[in-house]
Design a protein around this nucleic acid. Structure first.
Lengths: 232, 232
DNA sequence: TAGAGACATTGATGTGGATCAAGTTCTTTC
DNA sequence: GAAAGAACTTGATCCACATCAATGTCTCTA
């Protein structure tokens, strides 16, 4: 991986890595044991890079605990948040399957442990258990869909609409309660929806004045009127 | 598939479908023959839809001849061009691998012939020839990358820069000559780079005044200064 | 080959949201 | 727990680009 970060390889408790993640957790116990022996566990402290653009390391990195922030730098050096990886999600597929260099940066947002599997190891597993391919294909095709949708929103919706959609989507998974917790700083949130922190601030204020949301604290927001949020 | 379009199933000459496309053309002759027997050939006239948003048909569609225009409609009904599929490229993976409905519309841009393979047929092939999975994984991961880059451009680059990048990318594949042929109408081009036809018109004029390009005809453009196009 | 409809250009105008700048509040850390 | 520094908010200004409108040009088709 990146040479700049010391690695804390711990050979115990790969279990989480394997049994938790969608691409492996359909296997039976014995097969999982086999997978566990091939994956390497690794930990990163907040702010450390798992890989960076230009890096060619060919491992698949699966988040076990914590979260990774994937971002890009534009030609002009502006940072664009691509997505946040949560436990069970993976990254590194471009370098792994296409033998290309990474185009993204992957940074730990908090203390984060991941499992890594090399190209040759994964290839062996894919041949032996084709169902793993299928899971990865599922995940990748749904990522293509999500990213296309995200791109389409940049050109067809206003900043306010994108912010509102984002809040409602947070609610979706969170559910149960009508209070969402922003998992990102305002700066990252702004970058993700394609705007600036100043504008996020102003738009949240506007949404509050329209009685669509209520700001509880800086990172907690109550969704008052989900339907009209999507109607903007 | 879509019930609105008559299908022109021709059971001859699947050969192109199979031997031309990256996901199959690494197989040996005998294996290809096997694949040929499972795929279905189909033709579409200009403007016909191969599938549409909401459709749940679970086939992988591979372009053999011609081209398909993939687009989305936003909530507000605005059309966003996602990408153009050329021979060898495929679509339909979301519905196929995730058993979800299509989110895109796929429309023939000209007389187009495609090959289709159903979920169960493909699954059988994937188990038998794991190298096919690998090819699909390659293609999908590179699509994720491209789409992420496209999304990042919407937020970090100006319209002029996006247009310039687009022209240079056209040159890349076309190569040899420094003249590119726009494969899209101005309307589609505008949608693809996230702007309006009016602005495309104006920006092309500006680029010409800067001596970076020269418009030969409405669809042919000479790239005069590739380096500075990327420097904008 | 004329005429209609689609597509492309150009101009005039308005505005959403970026940018710059100045406070304010929240977190670190020593 | 005080000081330093992030992160956040609010205000004032500006501009890139959308939108609306009019005209010009291409290309089907009858």
């Amino acid at each position: 991986m990146t040479e700049m970060n010391q690695k804390h390889t711990c050979n115990t408790s790969h279990k989480g890595c394997v049994s938790l993640v969608p691409i492996f957790n359909h296997l039976d116990t014995e097969q999982m044991n086999e997978v566990m022996e091939t994956v390497q566990s690794q930990s990163f402290k907040k702010g450390e890079l798992v890989y960076h653009a230009g890096d060619k390391s060919d491992v698949l990195t699966i988040v076990n605990k914590g979260s990774l922030r994937l971002y890009r730098l534009s030609e002009s050096g502006k940072e664009q948040l691509v997505r946040v990886l949560r436990p069970g999600e993976f990254t590194g597929e471009l370098a792994l399957f296409n033998e290309k260099v990474h185009e993204n940066y992957a940074e730990a947002m908090e203390a984060t442990s991941v499992c890594q599997i090399t190209r040759s190891q994964l290839q062996a597993l894919l041949v032996k258990y084709p169902s793993i391919s299928l899971k990865i294909l599922q995940e990748l095709s749904s990522r293509v869909d999500q990213t296309e949708q995200q791109a389409a929103r940049f050109t067809t919706e206003s900043t306010e609409q994108r912010l509102a959609s984002y809040l409602v989507e947070l609610l979706g998974s969170d559910s149960q309660s009508d209070i969402v917790t922003l998992p990102l700083t305002k700066k990252d949130l702004a970058s993700y929806i394609g705007t600036t922190p100043e504008t996020v601030s102003r738009k949240l204020k506007e949404l509050e004045e329209l009685n669509l949301i209520k700001r509880i604290s800086s990172s907690k927001i109550k969704i008052v009127d989900e339907d009209n949020l999507l109607f903007l």
